[in-house]
Design a protein around this nucleic acid. Structure first.
Length: 564
RNA sequence: UGCCCGGUGGUGUAAUGGUAGCACGAAUGGUUCUGGCCCAUUUAGUCAAGGUUCGAGUCCUUGCCGGGCAGCCA
């Protein structure tokens, strides 16, 4: 890149930074460091909604010369585990982001948090409350009515300190006492009505075991985590908008480093569900094969299906960052994948629903190696050889005995191009007793080797094929949207029962061109005219490949058909 | 009947008081050894009413509509 012209920025989307980038840009312009963080709780797998947050947190830091921390927000032992920690790291790395040595556990801050809680008590801003959960709820008031103060609200500092220590040393039962911030029981923001800062729980923590039996709540812990790490911008979900006054209040009382929390809308996608609870429901009910089922919007699911990090990042860039609750069309995600893979995926020929073709004027036992282009979008991808022989397979859908208008493929008496091979004409149709077509007899024009008509005659249809002798047998799994319904979670009934019955079709006996026999398990291929496919990492075996379809190619023919 | 946030084509977004633009989708045509890609064209939008202003999607007021909040979850 030359930097001759300083004036013209060659940034593609030069127009308009999103509202968060604007704020950050301004801060960076005044010489401030930019530090962000991605703080998942290690109690589940990451999905594409998280990818949006990851791209925001890491992306923005990177763009403004800052850094982004990866932090496990493990303040509640229930459900957290090291397995999730590792899975999260793996997924973030796969997405293409690097936290360097800035990996943290909120649980490493428990002692420091404790000390600050003591300080807040000393300041008279927190108290130990003996109310049960039910009583706390009772006294909190409602959306319309103010709450009432806890009878324990005005204990002395000494008594609070004593009780707080005894909470930690195990004198009290789980749930019997809490530490609460002393704020305002009449606040119109319910989060400010003396929120709980610590609860007692003897559930073992996956890292700390039983070292602690009091655990900080999110509201108390999160701002401190951010503060300890010197975070400057704490980006989060719209859900936490109502919590920001509390986030600010704690840090203000303590007089510690005070990051700025900014909330943005989380991602919603059509034809799927995104919440941990709903995904879990699908997994637990056995409706899908696991958290890495290729139909799920989990990062692991998408990865196994053949989605690339580049496509997901491009998608996240396109949907933007706003405060509007929106529902993004899954078609946009699919578009991003096609756009990426069209540029990069090696092409190959595969016949999913084979129909046998015998080329009558091609000698038995003869084999030719024909040149095929690996990627017309990328000349540097080169060429490969594809064997041609007397017996072939073509796609059953590429033949029709009584073709309708606009059908450009094979039919009795009709000529098509066998891609990269010959022009072939169907001269006979062989049927079984049931009348089903079981074989086609064709003749080729020997002068058309390579696929070019010697006399320049127009051949409208080009179809893919695989030599029968050389074909590799494979299983192919066709995935479609998990739900036919755009918003599956808004209608009544269990999710599992609403799964799109066509979301998975397993095809056996598919015929692949030989080069696919040693396909690279890490990349997606374009099966010409069909879609993008990737080897299944779990079930594929040498000699018995299993391919997953990430996304079909756009198919205007199918679209025309379905409109009838 | 509390508090917070938000309303720009079907969808996702841009326009920071000055020509409402981009992308996806859809439709039509062109091109083509992938009915892919690519190219061209079309479709369609500022929630409403007042106000400020030479000028309002943008600022103000009111209304309407939508979302969120009463875990010792995050």
């Amino acid at each position: 890149m030359s930097n001759v012209s300083d004036k013209s920025s060659d940034q593609p989307g030069d127009s308009g930074l999103d509202f968060i980038r604007e704020i950050v840009a301004e801060s960076a312009a005044s010489g401030n460091e930019i530090v962000t963080r991605f703080p998942p709780e290690p109690n589940g797998y990451l999905h594409i909604g998280h990818a949006k947050a990851i791209c925001a947190d890491f992306g923005i830091a990177g763009e403004f010369g800052g850094v982004c921390h990866l932090r496990m927000d493990d303040t509640n032992p229930a459900g957290e585990s090291m397995e999730y920690v590792e899975a999260i790291k793996e997924d973030v790395r796969w997405l293409g982001f690097d936290w360097g040595d800035r990996f943290h556990y909120a649980s490493d801050y428990f002692e420091r948090m404790w000390e600050l809680a003591v300080r807040l008590i000393e300041l008279g801003k927190a108290y130990v409350c003996d109310l049960s959960p039910e009583e706390v709820r009772e006294l909190r008031g409602t959306l319309n009515e103010p709450g009432r103060e806890s009878p324990y609200r005005n204990r002395s500092v000494e008594e609070n300190l004593d009780l707080f220590n005894r909470m930690r040393t195990g004198e009290f039962e789980d749930g019997s006492r809490t530490l609460r911030a002393k704020i305002d029981m009449a606040s119109p923001n319910l989060n400010m009505r003396d929120p709980v800062m610590y609860r007692i729980s003897r559930k073992a923590h996956y890292r700390l075991g039983t070292e602690w039996i009091v655990y900080p709540t999110y509201d108390w812990a999160h701002g401190l985590e951010d503060s300890f790490e010197g975070i400057t911008f704490s980006l989060c979900d719209l859900d936490f908008e109502n919590h920001r006054p509390l986030y600010d209040w704690f840090l203000e009382q303590l007089g510690v480093h005070h990051p700025r929390q900014i909330e943005f809308a989380r991602l919603n996608l059509t034809h799927t569900v995104m919440s941990k609870r709903k995904l879990k429901e699908l997994v637990d009910s056995g409706a899908v094969s696991g958290w890495d089922d290729p139909r799920l919007p989990t990062l692991r699911g998408l990865r196994g299906r053949g989605y690339t990090p580049e496509a997901i990042r491009a998608f996240c860039a396109k949907i933007g960052l706003t405060k509007v609750n929106s529902l993004t069309d899954a078609a946009l995600l699919e578009h991003c994948l096609r756009e990426d893979l069209n540029r990069r995926a090696p092409r190959a020929m595969a016949v999913l629903d084979p129909l046998k073709v015998v080329v009558e004027n091609y000698p038995e036992g003869q084999v030719e190696e024909l040149d095929a282009v690996n990627n017309p979008e990328d000349p540097s991808a080169g060429k490969r050889k594809v064997p041609f022989s007397r017996t072939l397979y073509i796609e059953r859908a590429d033949f029709m005995e009584e073709p309708p208008k606009k059908f450009f493929r094979l039919a009795p008496g009709r000529e098509v191009r066998l891609r990269y091979a010959y022009l072939a004409t169907c001269v006979d149709v062989v049927k079984d007793d049931a009348g089903e077509v079981v074989e086609l007899r064709c003749v080729i024009d020997p002068e058309s080797r390579g696929g070019t008509a010697p006399d320049g005659r127009k051949v409208k249809g080009t179809i893919h094929w695989v030599s029968a002798d050389a074909a590799v047998d494979a299983e192919v799994r066709l995935y479609d949207r998990l739900f036919a319904d755009e918003r599956p979670d808004t209608s009544e009934g269990g999710l599992a029962s609403k799964i799109n019955p066509d979301s998975l079709k397993v095809l056996n006996g598919c015929k692949l061109e030989p080069s696919l026999g040693d396909a690279d398990p890490d990349i997606s291929y374009q099966f010409e005219r069909l879609g993008y496919f990737k080897l299944d990492s779990k079930d594929s075996r040498p000699g018995a490949p299993v391919f997953n379809r990430a996304v079909p190619l756009r198919d205007t023919w199918a679209k025309m058909q379905s409109k009838k």
